[in-house]
Nucleic acid binder design. Structure first.
Length: 425
RNA sequence: GGAGGGGUGACGGAGCGGCUAACGUACCGGUCUUGAAAACCGAGGUCAGGAGAAAUCCUGCGUGGGUUCGAGUCCCACCCCCUCCGCCA
């Protein structure tokens, strides 16, 4: 959520910043918000004066009654004052509601560094490694997986529909081993606290992180209880501290959690959906940070490096993109996408988005921190990134380490946990 | 799911529909002290949000409605926590 006070002070800045997001920027909302805000404040001023009067007169009424005197003239007057107050309060509530809706539907402001334009304006910052070309006919992961008996897409579809892959045997084991290995790196080397979180959350939680109200089509919701399946662990983890004031000195907070992620992918049918490329349910190790505004920019670089180290240790090839404004997520102020090279499908696959939300999520979720005892509470910055998403990581591993005979070599760092050096049919 | 109990400030804990939410603890300030603790003093102060240039004022007693000149207090609905019962991995 944007800061209405800042918006009031420098509306042009907001109009400009929202305009670079294109259509989704909703910059027209700025003027409507200013107009509502003005009416709201006028009503509050008048209502407050009347309330002050009512409070003091009500006291007088009480005194008179106790003294056995008549107070009917004051009561009659206060009845009218009460009606006027109710009218003004109603007007304030209406303005609050409309302002609230507009603020909830207006995305975050991109940082200055974010390039203007759509997806095509994304900037490649670095590429590590060289995209591999196998000297033999490289196979896509779905062929490798089916042949090795570690991936069963057909039966997953039988049970739940397309987009719900089943991993079998060594495939299931490989994913489990990867999850454990990644979590331990983040806990032991990067200082994160491991969490295990609910997979069903309230609508309030999704609003706090920015998925609702605008993107309800993207999530599944249960009809009996109005609980939503999480699209990412970001939602329960960030909302852990909703409506709290984090004590002085507790920042930064670093949480990591692995969870399944449920995504309807509405409108994405047929678009790079083969095999594991785009699925409705997948596992992901997520990193979430709460940082002071002063440190958040630096923290984004750290977070991105923490995700990259996973790819480095697995010996994969990747590149890092700075997303353009038009490609940013709704709540994001800046995002680095990490894409891994998959030589079977010959594509760069997004395995991580590392994002700073500045104070946007914190405002929505009403998460604050006290910089020092006795100081006024402020909004922290929240950041998160995948490290990493499992299916596409599995794709890159299988396709990169496939051999001409269809077997797959297990990367060195996973061998002890896997208890083997190869995947073989 | 059923029965009962509960939700008030940083914490504990009162609060017949009517001065400005009692009291205690903690914290903060002061006296004393080399320093601290203890003790004592303080019509005092402490949280969040909002309006205002400011003085100051308004709102907040789980949430949302309602009754009333006036609601922590009365009415309705809902949420959460605790105890017991039932069901259950």
């Amino acid at each position: 959520m944007l800061d209405i006070k800042a918006l009031r002070e420098d509306p042009d800045h907001f109009r400009r910043a929202l305009r670079v997001r294109g259509e989704a920027g909703n910059h027209q909302a700025v003027d409507r918000i200013l107009e509502l805000d003005q009416g709201r404040r006028a009503a509050i001023t008048e209502a407050d004066e009347l309330k002050a009067r009512r409070n003091s007169v009500s006291r007088t009424i009480g005194e008179r009654k106790r003294a056995g005197e008549d107070a009917s003239d004051l009561i009659a007057e206060m009845r009218e004052v009460g009606a006027r107050i109710a009218e003004l309060d109603g007007r304030v509530a209406e303005a609050d509601a409309e302002i609230g809706t507009l603020l909830l539907e207006t995305p975050n402001l991109p940082l200055e560094e974010v390039p203007e334009g759509d997806e095509s304006a994304n900037v490649e910052l670095r590429q590590v490694g060289t995209p591999l070309r196998h000297p033999f006919d490289a196979r896509p992961h779905w062929e490798l997986g089916e042949a090795l008996g570690i991936l069963d897409l057909a039966r997953g579809a039988k049970v739940s529909g397309s987009g719900f892959p089943v991993l079998r045997g060594a495939g299931a084991r490989l994913q489990r081993v990867l999850i454990e290995w990644m979590l331990e790196i983040h806990v032991r080397e990067h200082g994160y606290e491991e969490l295990h979180v609910p997979y069903l959350v309230t609508g309030d939680a999704l609003t706090g992180t920015g998925q609702l109200p605008k993107f309800s089509d993207e999530s599944w919701v249960t009809s009996r209880d109005d609980l939503w399946l999480i699209p990412t662990a970001e939602v329960p983890v960030t909302n852990l501290r909703r409506d709290e004031i984090i004590r002085a000195g507790e920042l930064p907070l670093r949480y990591t959690a692995c969870s399944p992620c449920f995504r309807r992918e509405a409108g994405a049918a047929g678009k790079d959906t083969r095999g594991l490329l785009r699925v409705h349910q997948f596992d992901k190790v997520e990193l979430v940070r709460f940082e002071t505004p002063e440190r958040s920019r630096e923290a984004l670089e750290e977070l991105t490096a923490e995700a990259e180290t996973i790819l480095e240790r697995l010996g994969l090839t990747w590149r890092v993109l700075r997303l353009a404004a038009g490609d940013l997520g709704f709540a994001a102020a800046m995002t680095y996408d990490i894409e891994v090279w998959a030589p079977g499908v010959e594509q760069w696959l997004e395995v991580s988005s590392c994002t700073t939300f500045t104070d946007y999520q914190a405002r929505r979720a009403n998460i604050r921190y006290r910089p020092a005892p006795g100081e006024k509470a402020r909004f922290p910055h929240t950041l998160n990134g995948s490290a990493l998403a499992l299916p596409r990581l599995m794709v890159a591993l299988l396709e990169t380490y496939q051999q001409e005979d269809g077997s797959v070599i297990i990367p060195e760092v996973l061998r002890a946990r896997m208890g083997s050096e190869h995947l073989m049919a």
